[in-house]
Design a protein around this nucleic acid. Sequence first.
DNA 1: CACTATCAACCTGTATGAAAGGTTAAATTT
DNA 2: AAATTTAACCTTTCATACAGGTTGATAGTG
Lengths: 229, 229
Amino acid sequence: MKTVKKKRLSEMVADEIKQYIKKENLTSGDRLPAATELMSALGIGRSTLREALQLLESQDILEVLNGKGTFIKDAKPFYIRTAFDVENEKNFLLDALDVRIALEGKAVDLAVHKATEKDIAIMQQHLTDYVRYINESKREQANRADARFHQALYEAADNQLLTSIIDSVWDTFHQFWNEPFGQDDIFDQSYPFHVSLLEAIQQRDTVAAADSFQKMMESVKSSIEKYQE
Amino acid sequence: MKTVKKKRLSEMVADEIKQYIKKENLTSGDRLPAATELMSALGIGRSTLREALQLLESQDILEVLNGKGTFIKDAKPFYIRTAFDVENEKNFLLDALDVRIALEGKAVDLAVHKATEKDIAIMQQHLTDYVRYINESKREQANRADARFHQALYEAADNQLLTSIIDSVWDTFHQFWNEPFGQDDIFDQSYPFHVSLLEAIQQRDTVAAADSFQKMMESVKSSIEKYQE
DNA sequence: CACTATCAACCTGTATGAAAGGTTAAATTT
DNA sequence: AAATTTAACCTTTCATACAGGTTGATAGTG
């Protein structure tokens, strides 16, 4: 038995608009007809059209700009979209950490070769901020400075794809990380590795950089494993 | 990485609803208040609420059912979404390859420890298929057998998050890979490394596995670099 | 009594007109 | 010529009305 789910009008309209785009060969910054025109052309109401457009917008196909109109977005050939539920936070964090180690480890490797003087100066600045906030017991701000340090590291690696994937993983990881675990002790453990990591990058020492990063991740991992749910 | 864009009301409402869900600790199949209630509670119009709900629906957080109500979906908390556009195919492929090396390298490492007998048997089967198709000059089918071999490898690594991200990268990579480059010579170069990789996994030899994988990727990389655009 | 058809209450889906902004370029003023 | 106002054309949001799906109570029928 096939379950033919009853589609909403807006979804069908979204498909029609997609077809229209393909038929008219619209690309890049081209503009779609105004809402009133589409409404009458498709024989639908404004709310339906709006939902259809928003659906396409959420798929990065369109961009609806107030006062201007709706425009075709650059077709993004690379697209990750994953959602799944986490039944066991601890195991999920360990999995996510493995992914983070893989990606960020590569970022470290690339940064050793590609980091410019400016990149290093930026990382140095964030690290200084980080240490200051730690000493002032400003956990929240220290947290953000740490994030900026890592962000600068990814940018030094000069690989956009790598950066964008790490960003997503980082966001998710920290969303879970900050909730169930106290990260206070992590700071103190991982701080020296931040310093030695930056030094290794500065000296273009691949092995030392990998080693510092490895130790940094070990301390995070052991913290997760210590946690009993 | 702050992009302060002017948010639409519906987006802000979506955030409020997300907060509401968290605050009220709603999970799984719980029902959200009816539209009319939310409208008056949030002080917004129907269309705005609808857009907010649809936004959350497109993120797999909600499900709006005609006649019944809107319900929290069970697949919730982890959500990764990345879009990326390509300006230079060759550089993109090299960047994507770095990402693939990072992720798949980690998968190899995990697979060495975690692969079951069954995992190994499946990989063996796909590898055999792969070799047969190569010898029969069936490039297309060999390609698919190769993909299945790698897919089996990721599953042996037993890390859902890792697998889902690799899948996306792999898809994208091959979508570009098959177009501009002839991959015929790659097959012959990388085939022996597939064999030695599987053997190393079978013998739980981390170093040998990493080495085989490394060489496999080197041959891909040199092929990309040889390509003059 | 058991079974079925109907209805009422509550829900989402869609349409529509009006009002409130945003954007741009032409028209008007300085 | 430069600055300002206006007008045309957009999207955004609201309020209201009605159509249509879902469910359980209710009334009717054998």
